[in-house]
Design a protein around this nucleic acid. Sequence first.
DNA 1: TGTTTGTTCGCAAGACTTGCAAATTAGGAC
DNA 2: GTCCTAATTTGCAAGTCTTGCGAACAAACA
Lengths: 153, 153
Amino acid sequence: MNSPSVLAAAYRAQGRKLTPQRQLIFSLLHDNRTHPTAEALYATASHKMPGISLRTVYQTLNELAEMGELQAIDLGEGVTRFDPNVDDHHHAICNACGAITDVHVERASALRPKGVDGFNVDDIGVVFRGVCAKCESSSKRSPSPQVKKKQVS
Amino acid sequence: MNSPSVLAAAYRAQGRKLTPQRQLIFSLLHDNRTHPTAEALYATASHKMPGISLRTVYQTLNELAEMGELQAIDLGEGVTRFDPNVDDHHHAICNACGAITDVHVERASALRPKGVDGFNVDDIGVVFRGVCAKCESSSKRSPSPQVKKKQVS
DNA sequence: TGTTTGTTCGCAAGACTTGCAAATTAGGAC
DNA sequence: GTCCTAATTTGCAAGTCTTGCGAACAAACA
């Protein structure tokens, strides 16, 4: 995602207005690697700007996604998460703590589906599920499950 | 997924009852490659057994998923789909017609996430998005978009 | 400062799934 | 074949996440 100032310019260039709400959301998203949900961003935003509405957060996130400034991702949790990282990347999800990490996968773009003829691939998504280093080490003392149901496959 | 008769035995072995509703669902799922949603199965089931409830369909599907007889998959459409194919496989989704196809991916299990240390991979899911052969050829005459938002990445 | 749009906000509504309690029934005993 | 008991099925209400809508508001610009 571009920096808040670049986004501000992009918004103006498109005839969109630069409101305090939008600017706040830009800043909260900048360099954010937590893959927040709209609710999570709303919680943080409310802290800095009491009164901002969840509706506005959703709206701004959708705008940014449409503009290609961020990626809306759905990992099968029932909620949409937003990722400011729009470079080519994939995700690793910890089954214990739920943390989502952006990862690179070598030669991922070279993967091809077998068993289906003439399928024209536009996009490839790889999702790793497992246990992150932090949970791996702490689980030696206290296991902490956290996943509800089988997801993306 | 096992055959209806094997499932029947498995159910009895677990002290579960073999109801007509369950048997019907077993048969509808057998060799089903459409990745149906609960609603879709309910529609078909209702046809053969008027009065069956959507609640029962959901319940039975969840049971089967827990038993490992089928896989609940969420491709980010907002609905859960069920796949009787529990072998190691991945999915190709047509952005035009929405069809979901089971596919194999060579060396998929050898993929590793880069950029995250000590992540212990349990499961890898690959999703291909693009246009299937059928839509590819028909689009030469009539384009037919169908996707709402960006999904699994 | 005034005007014009684009925005924000709050609430209702929509889609999908599950919780719950009452009515029903499969499966085993007699 | 008849009973009994625990598992199931049902229908409805409730819960979660996200969007539609209309009124009030404010950024951008003359």
